[in-house]
Amino acid sequence: MKKFVIALCSLGLIASAQAQQKPDGAQYEKVHQLFSQLNLSVNAVADAPIDGIVQVFTNRGLFFASQDGQYFIEGKILDMSKRELLNDSQMRPYIQQQLADSKNDIIEYKAKDEKYVVNVFTDPSCGYCRKLHNDMQGYNDIGITVRYLAFPRGGLGSDTYLQMQNIWCTKDSRGALDAAKEGKKVAAAMCENPVKSQYEMGQSFGISGTPAIILPNGRLIPGYQPPKQLLSQLESGS
């Protein structure tokens, strides 16, 4: 396990005398300034479960920093008492809240006898996304509802980004997505759509590829999961 700690003293943004102070509004502002130096936009800042450390939710995922701003921590932090990654446990509530706020902008494939709901960031041009989509009946048959969110891997302005705008703006968005997953062209259709905001939200979760599956508890699973394997993880509640 690699952990990279980069000293940022040379930025001169926060004096070392503040090291023992409890974070307040002014110090959080310094955190914003500090992360801006790294081209990271701060969405939220909170005390971490580690003394002297704050957790910073950014447009590129979760990072940690010392309260005095001297150290920026990039990497995984393991909670030995629980044998779990702090990065994961602290991200889950944040992910759940963000997804709850976006529940009306998804494309849903609902199970008849729904037991679980998963959110999946997808890209029509992604091979494993197509494999997941081809297994949709299998997920639905075992009670898993799939809610799709857009994550064009090529970024904003890419051909896939424009294609996903067309899909979300078509009256039959499910039919358009089905066609795109089969490699068919989707007719142009423009409207106010959530593709950009969903892509940026996925990045804030630390997602860089597709498919990316979010379980109900906020856990992020990168990559394709066969129906039975996904059901097993859902049943375990981990």
Rank of each mutant, 00 (worst) to 15 (best):
residue 63 F to P: 08
residue 63 F to S: 05
residue 65 A to W: 05
residue 65 A to N: 08
residue 65 A to G: 05
residue 67 Q to W: 07
residue 68 D to L: 06
residue 69 G to H: 07
residue 70 Q to R: 15
residue 70 Q to H: 13
residue 72 F to C: 03
residue 74 E to A: 13
residue 74 E to V: 11
residue 75 G to E: 11
residue 77 I to R: 00
residue 79 D to I: 01
residue 80 M to E: 06
residue 81 S to G: 10
residue 82 K to R: 15
residue 83 R to F: 04
residue 84 E to Q: 15
residue 84 E to H: 03
residue 88 D to G: 01
residue 88 D to N: 05
residue 88 D to T: 15
residue 89 S to I: 10
residue 91 M to N: 13
residue 91 M to S: 08
residue 92 R to T: 06
residue 93 P to T: 08
residue 95 I to G: 04
residue 96 Q to K: 14
residue 96 Q to T: 14
residue 96 Q to L: 03
residue 96 Q to H: 03
residue 98 Q to A: 13
residue 99 L to A: 04
residue 99 L to R: 11
residue 99 L to I: 14
residue 100 A to C: 05
residue 101 D to T: 11
residue 101 D to S: 14
residue 105 D to M: 05
residue 105 D to H: 09
residue 105 D to W: 02
residue 106 I to K: 11
residue 108 E to G: 05
residue 108 E to M: 09
residue 110 K to A: 14
residue 111 A to H: 15
residue 111 A to C: 10
residue 114 E to P: 03
residue 115 K to G: 07
residue 117 V to H: 06
residue 119 N to L: 04
residue 120 V to E: 09
residue 121 F to L: 11
residue 121 F to W: 14
residue 122 T to V: 07
residue 122 T to Y: 01
residue 124 P to D: 00
residue 125 S to A: 12
residue 125 S to K: 13
residue 127 G to V: 02
residue 128 Y to C: 08
residue 128 Y to A: 10
residue 128 Y to M: 08
residue 129 C to R: 01
residue 129 C to M: 09
residue 131 K to Q: 14
residue 133 H to W: 00
residue 134 N to L: 11
residue 135 D to V: 01
residue 136 M to L: 12
residue 137 Q to N: 15
residue 137 Q to C: 00
residue 139 Y to S: 00
residue 140 N to F: 06
residue 140 N to E: 12
residue 140 N to M: 14
residue 141 D to F: 04
residue 142 I to N: 00
residue 143 G to Q: 01
residue 143 G to W: 10
residue 143 G to L: 02
residue 143 G to Y: 04
residue 145 T to F: 04
residue 145 T to H: 08
residue 147 R to G: 04
residue 148 Y to F: 14
residue 148 Y to M: 12
residue 150 A to F: 11
residue 151 F to A: 02
residue 155 G to S: 00
residue 155 G to W: 08
residue 156 L to C: 08
residue 158 S to P: 13
residue 158 S to N: 03
residue 159 D to S: 15
residue 159 D to C: 09
